[in-house]
């Protein structure tokens, strides 16, 4: 994936050691439980998650921000094993999806 570092040179979310994952999943009521459950039971660090249906609603797109890259390989492999996960794409931390949302996550 192309890095977007130039356009967002100093976003706080672009701190070293973060990653953004883009998942395409089957859209049904249990799929978020599968994803979140995987992160909690395997002690993977999840900083943020976004999920919305795409296309005709049969699929959803999930964006996940993870802290620390040491577990990245395992996270991707374990996600790919989930039956409802169609694809996993790993982006650098600078991916704009979470940066663009920042204004909705202000405050103390």
């Amino acid at each position: 994936m192309q890095t977007l570092k130039e356009s967002y040179p100093c976003q706080p979310s672009a701190a070293a050691g973060q990653k953004v994952l883009e998942l395409t999943v089957n859209n049904h009521p249990g799929v978020m439980s599968h994803i979140c459950g995987l992160f909690s039971r395997r002690a993977f660090n999840m900083e943020g998650i976004l999920c919305m249906p795409i296309g005709d609603g049969k699929l959803s797109r999930i964006w996940i921000q993870i802290a620390g890259t040491s577990q990245l390989d395992q996270i991707v492999k374990q996600l790919e094993k989930l039956e409802d996960v169609r694809t996993v794409v790993s982006h650098p931390a600078e991916h704009e999806v979470f940066a663009k949302l920042e204004e909705y996550f202000q405050g103390s």
Binding site: P29, G30, S33, H34, G37, R41, L82, E83
Partner: peptide
């Protein structure tokens, strides 16, 4: 049952 069996199955369906 669905929620309870997520972590202990390979896959599950409702």
């Amino acid at each position: 049952t669905y929620g309870m069996s997520i972590p202990i199955t390979k896959h599950n369906f409702l």
